[in-house]
Design a protein around this nucleic acid. Sequence first.
DNA 1: CGGCGCACTTGCATTTTGCAAGTGTGTCCG
DNA 2: CGGACACACTTGCAAAATGCAAGTGCGCCG
Lengths: 93, 93
Amino acid sequence: MSDLAAALDVVGARWALLIVERLLDGPQRYGDLQRDLGVPTNMLATRLRELEAAGVLLRLPLRHNTRAYALTDRGFALREAIVALGTWGGKDT
Amino acid sequence: MSDLAAALDVVGARWALLIVERLLDGPQRYGDLQRDLGVPTNMLATRLRELEAAGVLLRLPLRHNTRAYALTDRGFALREAIVALGTWGGKDT
DNA sequence: CGGCGCACTTGCATTTTGCAAGTGTGTCCG
DNA sequence: CGGACACACTTGCAAAATGCAAGTGCGCCG
């Protein structure tokens, strides 16, 4: 399996890279991600579980039933790829 | 819609980036892509149509019922993003 | 102790993906 | 001339992913 295929296995699913992009700005709570990205709640829950299992992000308990999601080092390492893709998507030519 | 979302709209579908990666090495024929990537034939046909419509690649007729697929400039511009993702995917830490 | 906000889960409908088999067409071999 | 073949797909259907809407559990605040 190529390196690219390995990467897509982790962050190739729908919404995954958008979630990571949002977390590049710092930890976010579930409701924030949901409202900012417009992602369906069940998909968000599923992706957060997968990305946590993949070591891309982790859960920070805040209060009782409130927590934040933050990128790990591995997660922050996606910044270059995300910036490159964003740059490409922004060019209309 | 963010730049990243715009990019994923074009190359976010399954197999799309793998097809583009393969074409970075130069034009390839349908059967080559199919065998090299192991992508189902109906998905390959669909993706090639979408990527052509998006201006990422184009069809080069070779002979009778033989053609090659080659990246456009817009397609080659994905190289940086693909390399970045591949690098990320290759790191085990 | 009753209602609220937050972080989810659950139950389907819809869409996407995948497998396997079939189609059309031009070339090659006899 | 005719039949087998390679190539580039298409088609039919099953399985999996995605999406919508409503529901659940649980501390907290009044």
